[in-house]
Amino acid sequence: MKIEKILLIIIKIIFILTAVVLFIFLLSQDLVWSGKIEIKTDFFKFSPRISILKPQPRIILEEGNKVIGEPIWFDVSLPRDFQKASLEITYQDDNNYLIKIGPNTGADWDYKELTDIITDGNNKIGKLDFDMTGKNINNGKLRFSLTIPNFDINKPIYIKKVKMIFERPELLSEGLWLNLVNYFNYARSQF
C-alpha cells in the first residue's frame, strides 16, 4: 500500500476518533457523570447555561450591571436533575442592603438572605446553598430571583459575578442504570 493511502487512512481514523471523543464529552457533560457542574457568568457575555439579568429596564448593562429596580432575576439551564445548588454572588453595595436570593418553587420563591458576606475591595461576596427538591424547573430552566426589600432607586447596587455549583450523585455511586433512568425521566418531564 502506498504511503499516501496509509496517511489518509490514519487521518480519517483521527477525525473519526475526534468526533467520537467529542460525542462522549458532550454526553458526559449532559449526563453530569462527575456529579457536579459549575456555571459562571458576569452577565456581560452571552452564556448558554445562564441568562442575562432580567427584566432589562431594571438593569443598566453599560454601567456594569447597575441595578435600578427590584426584584431582578436570571434563568439557569439545567441539563438534568440535581439535589443541591450553591450560589456565590459578587456585587458592589455601598448601602449594606439586605439581599435575598432564591429559586422559584412555583407560586413562591425559596428566598434566603445573604448573611455571611466577605468583603473583597469594593466588592462583596455572598454564598447560599439550596436544596433542589420541589423547585419549579420549566423546559430545563430554573429561575432565580434577587430581591432587596428596602431598595432605594438612588442608591443602586452592581452585580459583578455569579457562580453556581449544582450537585447530584456521581455516576459510579449512583449506578449507570439509575443515572440513565433519572436523566430520561427529567428529559421527558421537561422537554
Partner: peptide, 10 residues
C-alpha cells in the same frame, strides 16, 4: 432537537 442544550451548552 429532543434534548435542548445537549450540543449548545458546550
Amino acid at each position: 432537537a429532543f434534548k435542548p442544550g445537549f450540543l449548545l451548552n458546550c
